[in-house]
Design a protein around this nucleic acid. Structure first.
Lengths: 170, 170
DNA sequence: ACTAATATGGAAACAAGTTGTCAAATGTCG
DNA sequence: CGACATTTGACAACTTGTTTCCATATTAGT
């Protein structure tokens, strides 16, 4: 690190000076952004040697957790991205033999996708590694606080589906 | 909604069946992904009418919170993205007169960036909207739980900088 | 001061996802 | 049954950020 100014300490002030109840929420937002970045980075590293990226891992997870073949739009909804985005992954993963295309009795053109034997093997190993990793991350953290934070995050997520507040009221 | 199967209910099972302490951590990971997606979506909508995207908002925030002009790599570190990625935004925002390029006395080629008058005006308005939004999100949530979740997330983020665990132990 | 390592900016290739458009398949409703 | 709206896949352009490679600037160690 040969940064030419401020070699030590945080480069940017972190604390919000807001004097009201939105401070904690704003800080949670920023922390979620940062955690998200690190999760993607570490998650990629975790499954890199399996020959997949975390996006592919997520697809395998969505289908596996569903317990049955899913269509592209269903996977997209589970992952929270658009169906076109998912379709790109599905096409690639089918080409790479991670997924199998099954005929959809309900739709002529819309196939269902299910992990191939290879896909299942890779997903199992990914989940084994993820469990090991998560156990390390949880080590020493009090269970009630973990559960409390999870509950609050879920509530936060629920509130985030509401439309943006209209101004002028309150 | 004319989905051809399972029109009602969650498309994918959410709950993990892991019988150990990693369950909550894994659920927190998934919830962080989902919250991140919604924050980006809503954040973009919040500042769209100001003519900026949330990435530009973040740049303005990094520089403003620092309280002094920053170089591209410093902004990148504050935002958690690569310096090349930030450079693209900086070049665009300078062209759009949101930022001003100041000579860096410590480096001949690496300019410092500071919000222009226009950039400051837009950032102020963005923060005003964000505060209003955060206040709505926080409404009715008990302060101690908010703070508790924030503390845990920060600890989680801190643990995520550690290298991935080696297998074979524990 | 000299050299080696590191930082930096720029450009190009790549990656993942979004948006828009079109046509085909499906569903809804009179 | 038939008109119309919705869903879906395919394709292309665009967006945002990363990776890689290179040239130049700065710093550190001797």
């Amino acid at each position: 690190m040969t940064r030419f100014d401020e070699p030590k300490g945080p480069p940017v002030r972190e604390a919000m000076d807001l004097p009201d109840e939105s401070r904690a929420v704003t800080e949670i937002m920023l922390t979620v952004f940062r955690i998200n970045g690190r999760l993607l980075e570490k998650g990629d590293a975790l499954v890199r040697t399996l020959g997949i990226a975390s996006a592919q891992w997520q697809v395998l997870g969505a289908v596996s957790l569903a317990g049955k073949p899913l269509s592209a739009p269903q996977i997209a909804e589970a992952m929270g991205i658009t169906r076109q985005g998912v379709q790109k992954q599905l096409n690639r993963m089918t080409k790479e033999a991670l997924l199998e295309k099954l005929p959809n009795p309900r739709h002529e053109r819309s196939s269902l996708y299910w992990p191939s034997e290879k896909g299942q093997r890779i997903y199992s190993e990914a989940m084994r590694r993820e469990t090991f990793w998560a156990r390390q991350l949880a080590e020493g953290l009090p269970g009630p606080e973990l559960e409390g934070a999870l509950d609050l995050l879920k509530e936060f997520h629920r509130r985030l589906e509401a439309p943006l507040p209209e101004e002028g009221e309150s």
